[in-house]
Simulated scan of single mutants.
Amino acid sequence: MKDDKMKIEQRLQNMKNFYIKAGEMIDKLPDEIPEKIRASIKDTILGDEDLKKLMDGIDSQRPPRIFLIGRTGVGKSSLINALCGTYVATVSDTKSCTESAQMYECKDNDRVLMEILDTRGIAESERLDDTVSAEEMLINQINEFSPDVAIFMLNCTHRDDVNSDVEFLKKVSKTYAEINKLRLPIVVVVNKCDEMAPTRYKDPKEYPENKVNKIQEVVQYYKGIIVKNGLKIDNIIAVSSLIDWQTPDGMEVDVESIENLPKYDIDNLQIGFDGRYRIEELLDILEEAILDFEAQMGLRMASRLKEVVDRLVKHLIKITSVALKN
């Protein structure tokens, strides 16, 4: 799996190198080709702004900073693994802020894929001392972290009273906008759809209609609370981040036991069963919500390497064919 990623990243760099050298190659075309046609070909390839943006993004991308808020047990770590399609979160603990927030780096070997500020719901947070409330403390930490997007995680099978979390996010959003002169994108994720009855259906392709309808009812329930309380969000989506993992030799392992495995097995865990539901749609939503292009590209490089390559290949073929027609 990791070898495949290395090959894909190498293909990206090869395309980047080709793009950089394209101008020199066009200049070396035979003299029989008129200068006007050469200039037209160069302008078609090197003047394509979408392609240039993608090429620049290969090197200038950075890990997206994600602020996660959700009650204990909502499945924050499993969501990160589901987004990346690999076992990355256990994540490396880089800074213990308080009992209410934790900052992580999700890594693939030495490469940082995402930076995450993981918080509990405000109702579960505790005071640092008598002079600083849990709410004030978290708002300060969040603004110091400067997230690219906030993910508000809810549980599909537990209709929690989330009014306090919604009110907290409104204050976070307001403070963020005042400090950064920029709105904070907020995406609501209703996780653990696989646990909705009938629970025996874990494969999303086999979800019966009554299960899908119940999932949508929960989404509408949470959406109603959010709208009623006046929290502005970019989108809301129900997902399942269910993945069963297995070692390279095919041994199935539950998540609670993964940390007891040898390091080699942990680094090379494979997907034994893929129960992810609407994760691709969530990635689309997150990419659209994130306002910073470098962070957008970082999310693609973390979770959609093959898609980035395919997109670049199609783009190069298209504009090269147009250039040759000229």
Rank of each mutant, 00 (worst) to 15 (best):
F273I: 12
I33N: 05
I139C: 04
E126C: 04
E9Q: 13
F18C: 05
L231W: 08
S92H: 11
Y19E: 01
A302L: 02
S125H: 02
G75T: 10
G230Q: 11
M6A: 12
E259G: 10
S321P: 03
P262S: 08
R127K: 12
A150F: 05
E99A: 13
D254S: 15
F273Y: 14
D274P: 14
C156A: 15
M153L: 15
L305C: 01
R38V: 08
W245Y: 06
A101P: 00
I20V: 13
G275H: 11
S125R: 12
I41H: 03
D3M: 10
V253D: 11
V253L: 11
I116Q: 01
I116W: 00
I139S: 08
M251C: 08
Q10C: 03
M301C: 08
V255P: 00
V313T: 14
S100Y: 08
I122P: 01
Q296T: 11
R304E: 07
N140I: 01
A323G: 10
R304M: 06
A134H: 13
V149F: 01
G250S: 02
A89G: 13
K223Y: 07
I179H: 02
D4E: 14
V188R: 08
I66T: 00
K192W: 02
N210T: 09
V218W: 05
F273H: 14
C193N: 02
K205I: 13
E24G: 10
L79E: 02
D203K: 15
D31W: 07
A197L: 06
N14H: 13
Q270G: 10
E217Q: 15
V188Q: 03
E294W: 03
E115S: 09
I237S: 07
I279P: 07
D284R: 05
M301D: 04
D59F: 06
L261W: 10
K52V: 07
L261F: 05
C106M: 11
H315A: 07
V112C: 13
K318P: 01
M196N: 04
A22D: 04
C156L: 07
N260T: 14
V112A: 02
K174Q: 10
E217R: 15
R111G: 03
D160R: 10
Q270S: 11
L46Q: 15
R120D: 03
T98W: 02
P204Q: 09
N210W: 10
P185T: 07
V189E: 02
V187K: 09
D4V: 15
E49V: 10
D284V: 12
N81W: 05
E105K: 14
N143F: 00
L261M: 08
V166Q: 01
D194M: 00
E281A: 14
N155E: 09
